[in-house]
Amino acid sequence: MTEYKLVVVGAGGVGKSALTIQLIQNHFVDEYDPTIEDSYRKQVVIDGETCLLDILDTAGQEEYSAMRDQYMRTGEGFLCVFAINNTKSFEDIHHYREQIKRVKDSEDVPMVLVGNKCDLPSRTVDTKQAQDLARSYGIPFIETSAKTRQGVDDAFYTLVREIRKHKEKMSKDGKKKKKKSKTKCVIM
């Protein structure tokens, strides 16, 4: 069974824990209790493949930012979460993405942009803004509501699919490099 290491990042209060708990335990946590770091595991079937999701729910508070490099190193894919009623959390996505790329030393890291709290009427981040940002990053965008469960499975499952595509691409690139290195030079 394939294991996928997913990391949920975003500013404090955007609903990272609520999304994760909704996926794992099928219930909505409405009281806000700032996370330092929590880890969850769940076995699911995605596109006919049974897999184990190892999900790291991270601290959004700035005082825990020193811990970010460590979990970013171990993560295979990242859910970059903002709240649709919090423009600052949307603007912060850029910083999370840049930090992930720096730590992973790669421009090509599996990510999904997630606009959470889409059940709320007080939207300050337009869907088109988020779609445009995701398009500019070359990553999928999904709106979710941890409260109603809308888009929750889709967000995590899409990230797994992005990781699969990335692994497939990397193995193809690896095979191309191996083929090239088999060419021999004969000096007579």
Rank of each mutant, 00 (worst) to 15 (best):
G15T: 00
G15Y: 00
Y40E: 01
E31F: 15
T2K: 14
N26S: 13
V44P: 13
S17A: 02
D33N: 04
G10D: 02
L56A: 03
V14N: 09
Q61E: 15
S17N: 01
K16T: 07
D47Q: 09
V29Q: 14
V44Y: 08
S39E: 06
Q25M: 08
G12D: 14
G10A: 07
V14G: 11
Y40W: 03
G10W: 01
Y64M: 06
L56R: 04
N26I: 05
I55P: 02
G48D: 10
T50R: 12
T20G: 07
G48P: 08
K16C: 08
Q61W: 04
D33G: 02
V44G: 14
E37K: 04
I46T: 11
T20W: 01
G60C: 03
A11Q: 09
L53I: 14
S17F: 00
V29T: 12
S17R: 02
N26A: 13
P34N: 04
R41P: 15
C51R: 09
Q61L: 09
L23G: 13
E31D: 13
S17M: 01
G12E: 15
V44K: 11
L23C: 13
I21L: 15
P34H: 06
Y4G: 10
Y4V: 12
N26G: 13
G15H: 02
G48K: 10
G60T: 00
E49C: 07
C51D: 12
T58H: 03
D47K: 08
V9Q: 04
E3Y: 07
I36R: 01
D38S: 05
T58V: 06
V45F: 10
D30L: 10
Y4A: 09
D54R: 06
H27Q: 14
A59F: 01
G12C: 08
L6H: 02
A18N: 13
S17V: 01
S39H: 04
L23K: 11
R41L: 11
D38R: 02
L52S: 15
G60D: 03
I36W: 01
G10Y: 02
D38I: 01
K42D: 11
L23Y: 13
V8T: 05
G15M: 00
T58Y: 00
P34A: 10
A18T: 07
T20D: 08
K42H: 10
G12N: 11
E37M: 01
A59T: 08
I46Y: 11
Y32W: 10
C51L: 10
G10K: 00
I24T: 13
K16F: 00
E49H: 09
I21P: 02
V8E: 03
Q25V: 06
A59M: 00
R41D: 11
Q22K: 12
K16V: 01
Q43Y: 08
V7S: 07
K5I: 02
G13R: 08
S17C: 03
T20L: 09
D57A: 01
G10I: 00
P34T: 06
D30W: 08
E31G: 09
E3Q: 10
T50Q: 09
L56S: 04
G15F: 00
V44Q: 13
A59I: 00
K16S: 13
S39V: 13
S39G: 15
K42F: 09
V9Y: 03
D33M: 03
C51T: 11
P34R: 03
I36M: 07
Y32V: 05
E63N: 08
C51H: 13
F28E: 04
V9N: 05
N26M: 09
T58L: 00
E49R: 09
K42E: 12
G48E: 11
V9E: 01
L56Y: 03
V29D: 13
S17L: 00
E63K: 08
E31R: 07
L19M: 14
D30C: 11
T50F: 08
A11H: 08
S39T: 14
L52N: 15
E3P: 15
D54C: 04
